[in-house]
Amino acid sequence: MTNILEVDQVTKTYGKKHEQQYQALKGVNFSVAAGEFVAIMGASGSGKTTLLNLLSTLDQPTTGHIRINGQDLSSLRPKQMADFRSQSIGFIFQDFNLLENLTNRQNIALPLTLRVISTNRIDPLIDELADKLDIKAILDKYPVAVSGGQKQRVAAARALIHRPAILLADEPTGALDSASAREMLDTMSLLNQRDHVTTMMVTHDPFSASFAKRILFIKDGNIGQEVNKGTKSRPAFYQELIAYLGTGE
């Protein structure tokens, strides 16, 4: 299987030279293959968001290399990076980050309008995806008028509409109640299984992580243990995670 994402000896140090410095990532190595669903777990301050920012080209590693879809990110110039983001990466954030001045449909359309694509192909694409995510009825409403769970599914639609190589999610269920969180996670694993959307999710919540197929634990800027779901059922995997976290700390 080809690797969509390769992270090679990546470190990240915050703070300028001669100032107080803090090394948030201390040489991280891992890779994600096409069609995988990987979760990265860690306590607060362990470097999850830092890692995600590097993967999404919003920030650059201090040393080391990151390759997405075979493209070395460090060789990109700022403008190319923006293009790369808009083409190859989809984001889901904890706080939805929908633009409340646009209808849900317009929100989803944005990644496509940023690219040169024939305008009459956009709506059919949105309708098709909205069907899968069960948000067709609310497409022409504004984000304020829909529930948190629906907002997050709109955000997912926006992240996926342009068929990115990888979906990056930072605590996607952090702001949802448990029922909506569950729905969202089900949707994500369905998208992964049926449509083979390569997904990388960052979370500190074992329940969310149990939906992934593989879990990387990050601690103090290092990737430590790795756990595979294998053929286990999800609830069994969840129990295993809880047990692991209980003994690990």
Partner: peptide
């Protein structure tokens, strides 16, 4: 104007118009 997709679905137009509308 926003209803005219062929006009608004270009780059950031939809965003600019949305901002202005509110």
């Amino acid at each position: 104007l926003l209803k005219r997709r062929s006009f608004t679905y270009r780059r950031l137009r939809v965003f600019t118009l949305g901002q202005l509308k509110f």
